[in-house]
Simulated assay, not measured.
Amino acid sequence: MSFFKKLKESIAAKTEAVTNVFKEGLSKTSSALVGKVQDLITRRKKIDEEFYEELEEILIGADVGVNTVMNLIEDLRAEVKKRKIEEAAELQPILSEKLVELLRGDANNGLAMNDAGITVILFVGVNGVGKTTTIGKLAHRFKQQGKKVLLAAGDTFRAGAIEQLEVWGQRVGVEVIKQQAGSDPAAVMYDAVHAAKQRGVDVLLCDTAGRLQNKSNLMEELNKIYRVIGREIPGAPHEVLMVLDATTGQNALSQARLFGEKSGVTGLVLTKLDGTAKGGIVVAIRQELNLPVKFVGLGEKMDDLQEFDSEQFVHALFAGLIQDAETRDNEAERKE
């Protein structure tokens, strides 16, 4: 069975609504990346050095990351040699297969939940990446699953951040624990944990400050928050999710490196993927940081925050090619 056919069958087991969200959210990246690959294959029927050079440029242009692209091209060369491939068209499913492997990795994409009590999830990331929106959408997701959710406004350095989280709390129908702007973030977390215990909450979602310009202070604040939460709920926080804006491309990768080194990040959320043609950054981040991408933001609607699924991601990118492959298979079957 061809790779595209296997991929389609694997996707068929998932809901059509989710598949459509991925397709719509990744349409810009699909046009930029897959459209250019298709054009390359149409123009250069044969696989030669110039073909590899152009493919390299296309992948780097989609922000797949230089190191990842070099390794990917080497893998493709080895496969071409091994399978004695000469026609460029035969490389399409192999490229798709390699991307699924790169995205999947060994990491578990699922959230670590506390079966014995309150699950605490901490959010980190610079200002403007969509952190508060992500918290609101995730609160909505948990509520849909029947869980009792509480929000903690730990970004006390910006009055706007507290207000924004309150707006999301009202939209979703969950309470927000807050103090005045300028308060100690760890004190807010202490209040939030106690409120969560008293109210029988299942999930506590905690916002934190997003300033990078004063990194040592920021890390000290985070460490203090960890200590307060961990003292009140052993093993917490159960997840530390770093939120990144996919439209910033390689800059998002730099932010993840800066934060990830010291802040104990356990997973990533990539927002605004629908707004960029450089969705290849997901591959670069997954490869270079060895951190699982837990969620992706694929639109403005409440339900557009989706659990990351490597097969859905690649299926959405290569949707046009999968249709073409199906048409060819059907024609071949009719001729038989």
Rank of each mutant, 00 (worst) to 15 (best):
D115M: 14
V126S: 04
L205H: 00
Q144A: 15
L218S: 08
A139E: 09
E331P: 00
R334D: 09
K147E: 03
V243R: 04
T15S: 15
P234W: 09
Q255I: 06
V66Q: 03
E97A: 07
G249V: 04
G61R: 12
V69D: 00
Q145S: 13
S2G: 15
E101S: 06
D155W: 15
S216K: 13
K46M: 10
K197G: 03
R231V: 08
F123E: 02
E57A: 11
I11K: 06
N251I: 05
Q145A: 14
V64H: 00
L241A: 01
V167H: 05
N214M: 07
K224G: 03
F3R: 07
I58S: 11
L258Q: 08
A284N: 05
I233H: 01
A139F: 05
L253Y: 15
I322T: 13
D184N: 15
R141Q: 11
E163K: 12
G297N: 14
K46T: 14
Q255A: 02
E87W: 01
Q92M: 14
G35H: 10
K178T: 14
H315W: 13
T156P: 09
R211N: 12
A12C: 04
V193C: 07
D115K: 15
E333C: 00
L273Y: 14
V172N: 01
R231Y: 01
V283L: 12
I225Y: 02
L253D: 06
D155Y: 14
D245Y: 00
V18I: 15
V69W: 05
K301E: 14
N114M: 11
D106W: 04
A181S: 13
K23D: 00
R43K: 14
V34R: 00
E90G: 03
Q170F: 01
D324N: 11
L273R: 07
Q145P: 07
L253M: 10
F318T: 15
Q198I: 06
Q144N: 12
T156K: 00
V203G: 09
K262Q: 10
V34E: 10
Q198A: 15
H194Y: 08
S96P: 00
T132S: 13
L204G: 08
C206G: 02
V203P: 01
Q213A: 15
L33Q: 10
T248W: 03
A153P: 12
D207R: 10
L122Y: 06
R334Y: 09
A152M: 09
G128H: 03
I162Y: 15
I135F: 04
E90L: 14
K178Q: 14
G260Q: 05
P237D: 02
A181V: 11
V34L: 07
V296K: 05
L270R: 04
F51P: 05
L72H: 08
T133M: 10
A277L: 05
R77A: 03
T248Y: 00
L212C: 07
A236D: 06
A62F: 10
T29R: 07
L270N: 01
A152P: 03
K178N: 04
D106S: 13
Q144P: 00
L244W: 06
V124I: 03
E336W: 10
L258R: 02
E331K: 10
S31H: 05
E239Y: 06
N108G: 10
H238L: 09
D48M: 11
K28R: 15
H194R: 13
I47R: 02
G146A: 11
F318N: 13
G61D: 13
I225R: 01
E16S: 15
I11T: 08
Q198T: 11
A209N: 08
E239V: 09
L273P: 11
